[in-house]
């Protein structure tokens, strides 16, 4: 688990993680979104289009784009995703990206998010706060 110390994460660290010079952070969030979209066992055409549109807005190398398209064929398992999260702040962003990509009307998708929050050690109050921001 992470050492969760509230009020010690500066805003800059959140935006740095996904700015153009930190494509590792962007890639991790994209991989999280793909894994979340796949939580119900398939990625439908709407989800695929959303992901493609997102990838096009990112400044990625040809290799990085190829990696994401491979990822669409074989999304990460939840355990792999959790293992790839380097710190608590990225954990929050990974959860927010996942929650924004997932269809919350599906029980299996809700369960996926619950498990993700649990494994990333995100407190339930913070989970609720993220959903308030997302309007979900």
């Amino acid at each position: 688990g992470f050492d969760f110390t509230p009020a010690t994460l500066p805003e800059q660290s959140f935006t740095d993680a996904i700015d153009d010079n930190h494509s590792d952070g962007q890639l991790l969030l994209m991989r999280a979104m793909i894994a979340a979209a796949y939580a119900d066992g398939h990625i439908d055409e709407t989800e695929r289009q959303k992901i493609f549109a997102q990838v096009e807005t990112m400044q990625l190398s040809v290799q990085e784009k190829a990696m994401l398209f491979d990822e669409l064929r074989k999304p990460m398992q939840l355990s792999e995703l959790v293992a790839a999260v380097p710190n608590a702040q990225m954990g929050i962003e990974v959860y927010a990206a996942s929650a924004s990509a997932i269809d919350l009307n599906q029980t299996v998708s809700k369960h996926y998010l619950d498990t993700l929050a649990n494994q990333l050690c995100i407190p339930s109050e913070l989970v609720m706060s993220i959903h308030r921001e997302l309007n979900t």
């Binding site: 509230p6 969030l29 997102q54 807005t57 927010a96 407190p123 993220i130 921001e133 997302l134």
Partner: peptide, 18 residues
């Protein structure tokens, strides 16, 4: 994705101020 970063920060800030 920039939106996700801003949103995560706002959610975290709200949480930490509770």
């Amino acid at each position: 994705l920039a939106a996700v970063g801003g949103l995560a920060w706002k959610a975290y800030k709200q949480y930490s101020e509770q």
